[in-house]
């Protein structure tokens, strides 16, 4: 599928709402070198969102959509949480699964797509909150990794259950007091990146979404490695500014503070040898193509 597939019948062109005409004319599908810099110029990269003002998750969502290497052939699997309020605005195929089931749904989907479209590249990307990934859906998350299912799992880690008022989650840091967890968390934050590594993920990254270039790179790497080698996992810090008592403008600074050395969201990357080799080959190919383009 590509932009050619999403044409409006000429008879109805004038009566279609403007955002659909814009989607057909301006969408970045198939565009060479699409990325986060297209945000703000293309409606399909979430022009309006339904999250709170200044929510870092809205930034993360946009970066992810802009960085997908193959958006027209990508299916995203969501779960209950703030992300489910954004998915209706997303011009990429997406499925809303029951709370916690996202990795099980994605496993079946990925397999079905490879049977249905054997000659085509179809990417599956799971995008869920920490409650769905680590608490309610931990079984499904781990089992998908154990089975080496070839898709990317992205966890938007805001360290609590945000849209239900601030309950304790497995990824909440020790000692944190939330509105609905008044005694403070008594246990350490679950170390899911390490668990992902031990469970067989070929590429694992723990970071914030404060740097769009970095997010673009890790999303692209994660999707491409998942396509060729095995499961990949990204844990992205998207703080809930409401639940941690910050203002709309303070989300970015909160992420910057949390990624300093020694902090819980300092950049952490794990890449298997085969994934490293794959990335090196990819880079070499890209350099070759770029050199050929300059010569040509």
């Amino acid at each position: 599928m590509s932009k050619e597939k999403i044409q409006i019948c000429p008879e109805f062109y004038d009566i279609m709402p403007p955002e659909y005409r814009d989607l057909v004319e301006q969408a970045t599908y198939g565009k060479e070198g699409r990325g986060w810099k297209d945000i703000g110029q293309s409606k399909e990269l979430i022009e309006d969102h339904s999250l709170c003002a200044g929510c870092p998750e809205s930034m993360a969502f946009r970066y992810i959509l802009a960085s997908l290497p193959n958006p027209e052939d990508t299916v995203m699997v969501g779960s209950t949480g703030c992300t489910s309020l954004v998915f209706p605005h997303v011009a990429v195929h997406n499925i809303h699964s029951l709370f916690g089931n996202q990795n099980a749904v994605a496993s079946g989907l990925k397999r079905a797509l490879s049977v249905r479209f054997p000659g085509r590249i179809k990417d599956v990307v799971v995008l869920a909150g920490d409650g769905a990934t680590v608490d309610i859906g931990l079984d499904m998350t781990l089992q998908a990794w154990f089975r080496q299912e070839k898709f990317t799992t992205i966890c938007f880690d805001n360290e609590l259950y945000a849209n239900t008022g601030g309950q304790e989650s497995g990824l909440m840091r020790k000692g944190f007091v939330a509105k609905m967890a008044p005694v403070g968390k008594k246990f350490e934050k679950v170390r899911l990146p390490e668990i992902a590594r031990e469970s067989g993920c070929a590429y694992v990254v723990n970071c914030t979404v404060s740097k769009p270039n970095l997010v673009e790179k890790v999303i692209r790497n994660a999707v491409l490695i998942a396509r060729e080698i095995g499961p990949t996992y990204l844990q992205l810090y998207t703080p809930c500014i409401l639940e941690i008592g910050k203002n709309s403008m303070e989300g970015l600074q909160e992420m910057r503070d949390s990624e300093k050395p020694g902090e819980r969201f300092r950049y952490y990357e794990y890449v298997t040898d085969s994934a490293k080799q794959f990335l090196a080959e990819l880079e070499a190919k890209e350099k070759q193509t770029a050199a050929a383009a300059i010569e040509g």
């Binding site: 019948c9 000429p10 109805f12 009566i15």
Partner: peptide, 30 residues
Amino acid sequence: LWNWNEKAAKKAKAIKVLAECIPARIIPMP
């Protein structure tokens, strides 16, 4: 509404003819 295939294109033409015959307003469900 979307030009998936020849069948869709033909139906779109026919709907436009119907709307003009009545005449009726067309409001899409995209």
